[in-house]
Computed example of a mutant assay.
Amino acid sequence: MKTNVQIHAIYLAHLADVVKQPIGKAKVTVASGIEGDRFALGTGKYSAVEPSKVRHSTLIALSGIEVANEWLQARG
């Protein structure tokens, strides 16, 4: 199966529960994630949970964002 994947935007935050900021480029490290992001820094919401829940990045499909935006617009 051939797929065409595009990254439309990258957002990161240095702590959990703060507004993510867009970045123009990123340095990604295997087994760590995006440099400067909460997952790589170990400051994410689930970083201290036992047993460990490994999170290096979160991917959201563009179609999911479009559906969420439609729901928000419908609610007014």
Rank of each mutant, 00 (worst) to 15 (best):
I65V: 15
A13C: 10
T3I: 08
A61V: 02
A74S: 15
R75W: 13
T43W: 01
S47I: 04
L15M: 12
G76R: 13
S63F: 04
K25L: 02
G64F: 00
R75Y: 14
L62W: 12
S32Q: 13
P22G: 06
L12A: 02
V5C: 06
Y46A: 08
S52F: 01
V30L: 15
P22F: 03
K27Y: 04
N69R: 15
H56T: 13
G64Y: 01
A9N: 11
S52N: 08
A26G: 06
K2R: 12
G36P: 06
V30R: 13
N4W: 01
K2C: 01
E50W: 00
G64L: 04
I7A: 03
V54A: 11
N69V: 14
M1I: 06
G76T: 15
G76C: 13
P51F: 05
I60D: 01
S57D: 01
A31C: 10
S63V: 11
A68F: 12
T58N: 10
A74N: 13
D37L: 06
A13E: 11
G64E: 15
S63T: 14
V30H: 10
V5Q: 07
V19P: 07
P22N: 08
A48F: 00
R75H: 14
V18S: 05
E66L: 13
K25T: 07
I7T: 11
H8E: 14
I7Y: 02
P51G: 07
T58L: 14
A61K: 13
A61P: 09
K20R: 12
M1Y: 02
T58G: 05
S52Y: 00
Q21F: 03
V67L: 15
I60A: 07
P22I: 11
A31M: 12
Y11Q: 08
T43A: 01
I10H: 03
Q73Y: 07
E50H: 02
K45S: 10
A68P: 00
E70V: 09
G44Y: 02
R55D: 01
P22R: 14
A61F: 09
L41V: 07
T29W: 04
H56S: 06
H56P: 00
N4M: 03
V30P: 09
T43C: 01
G44Q: 03
D17S: 11
D17A: 10
E66D: 15
H14T: 12
D37T: 05
A68R: 13
F39G: 03
Y11H: 12
G36R: 02
L15I: 06
T29I: 15
K27I: 05
Y46E: 08
G24Q: 13
L59H: 10
G42L: 09
E35L: 10
K25I: 00
M1A: 10
Q21E: 15
K25G: 08
V49Y: 03
R75M: 15
T29F: 08
L72T: 11
A68V: 09
H56C: 07
A40P: 01
A40T: 04
Q73E: 15
G33Y: 06
S47W: 01
V67S: 14
K45P: 00
K25F: 08
K27G: 02
Y11E: 09
V19R: 09
A48Y: 00
